[in-house]
């Protein structure tokens, strides 16, 4: 298994606080990796370090063998990494179709000049891809609705579809099941597994243990910014450090 993403001693300080402390791990091509940890463990910070939203204090991120440490978010995205956000960030005053098209056009690129004269081939590609993703998540009926008018669950799928429209090599999902009920979570985990079985590498942060334990092949556990476990779900469940972190460390 070749590593698609490698993290090497990744560290980030905020003032006196070390949010992410010497995290070294990797995500192999085609893997579905979960990242868990108690509140304040540094999961979202780690995602921000990987996707370029936060610069690491030290350490390196390598993606497809190339060092991407400190690159701005859009350049990281261009290299084939796509992410969603923890607190659901769709473009509320744009239609569902337009939301998804931003993912497609971000990856394919679109110029001011092309939009005035010609550029039909490019816009054809963008619309093809956007429709494909709309159908994929079953939102084609609502293509013309404002994203703000969608239900919470559908907005979640919209956000994922928008990320997928970039046709990424690595998809990073930040708490995709937050705010979902049991049956919605089950449906979502089915969808994620399906994407993974088609060959997409996925890394996800989640609070919902059942989701992570149920679908991930490997689970990385963070506590106080440090990696304390990196193993299969079965092993992690029995790992003493993990149990301690969850039972004794919830107060962080």
């Amino acid at each position: 298994m070749t590593a698609l993403l490698e993290l090497d001693g990744l560290t980030r300080h905020f003032g006196g606080l070390t949010a992410v402390d010497e995290v070294t791990t990797h995500v192999g091509q085609g893997e579905l990796v979960g990242l868990i940890g108690p509140n304040g463990a540094g999961k979202t910070t780690l995602f921000n370090l990987i996707s370029g939203f936060t610069r690491p204090s030290s350490g390196a991120v390598r993606f497809k063998g190339e060092e991407i440490t400190g690159l701005p978010p859009h350049q990281v995205a261009h290299r084939g990494m796509s992410r969603t956000f923890q607190n659901l960030r769709v473009f509320p005053n744009m239609t569902v179709f337009d939301n998804i098209s931003v993912g497609a056009l971000g990856a394919l690129g679109v110029g001011a000049f092309q939009s005035v004269i010609g550029g039909r081939k490019r816009s054809h590609e963008i619309s093809e891809r956007s429709w494909e993703m709309l159908e994929r998540v079953g939102l084609n009926e609502q293509a013309n609705d404002l994203a703000a008018n969608l239900s919470y669950g559908k907005r979640k799928y919209l956000e994922i579809a928008r990320a997928l429209a970039m046709e990424p090599d690595l998809l990073i999902l930040d708490e995709p099941a937050a705010g979902m009920n049991h049956s919605e979570t089950a449906e979502l985990s089915q969808f994620i597994t399906e994407l993974n079985s088609e060959g997409l590498t996925i890394m996800l942060v989640e609070h919902d243990m059942s989701l992570v334990m149920g679908i991930c092949e490997r689970v990385v556990v963070l506590a106080s910014g440090r990696k304390i476990a990196d193993d299969t779900p079965v092993e992690v469940r029995q790992n003493q450090a993990v149990l301690d972190a969850y039972l004794g460390g919830d107060d962080e």
């Binding site: 337009d98 931003v102 816009s123």
Partner: peptide, 26 residues
Amino acid sequence: RLTNSYYGNALRSLREDDQCAAAMGI
């Protein structure tokens, strides 16, 4: 034509949420 096109959509995404747009490769 500039605004009613995919280029216009890219501009709109800046208005809506520029961080999110950056994550989309913009």
